[in-house]
Amino acid sequence: MRQVSCTSCGGALQIENQFIRVVVCPYCATNYLVSGGDTLAPGRTGASLVDAPSRLQIGARGALRGRGLTVLGRARYRYDGGFWDEWQVGWDDGAPPDWLEEDEGYWTLYRRERLRGPVPPPDTVQVGSTVQANTHPVFVTEKRRGHLEGTEGQFASTLPLRGEFVYIQGGAAGRTVCLTYWQDEIELSVGDDLDHTDLVLS
């Protein structure tokens, strides 16, 4: 854990582990890229999420199937049908952070997976079709355009604060797969559905 100060407002910031690439000042919402040095490189200022109610909160601790975790960050995405939150969780066992998403009270744990082959352009994908992403034949149940509305906490990857993206989501052999088409990057996330007893918050 590393202590730094917000260069914009002077607030104290704690960087939880070596995987963190972005930290958001909880006081002024300034985003910082984390480098190896003692200083922070200020980025853009995003929207603050401190007023958005949630069941989780930054710093909350718990266990997922007995594996200790800490909630590090939250990213809220907005689309034409509303919004959703993704929570960055760090593991007590030192593994790289993952993403936790809640949908109607049911949790899914997402891991980023390196994309190893081509995927169809988003404008050719229709809801109800099946697309191939790595080894996953994804039955597409959702396709939307969205943007990042705001962030809080800290993250193991950089999140573009501006611009839109297209995402397609669906099921593949018992797992939930999400392809996100950013302006200059395509991300593949593979999720495991969690039982409601799997996640215990302390």
């Binding site: 109607e104 049911y106 039955f139 797992r175």
Partner: peptide, 24 residues
């Protein structure tokens, strides 16, 4: 926090929840 839907239609009352894995 889990959510379900209680539906009242001509068949009576039913309770259902979102299914995450299904299809194609």
């Amino acid at each position: 926090g889990r959510l379900s839907w209680l539906t009242h239609d001509e068949n009576g009352l039913s309770l259902s929840a979102k299914v995450r894995q299904w299809g194609p």
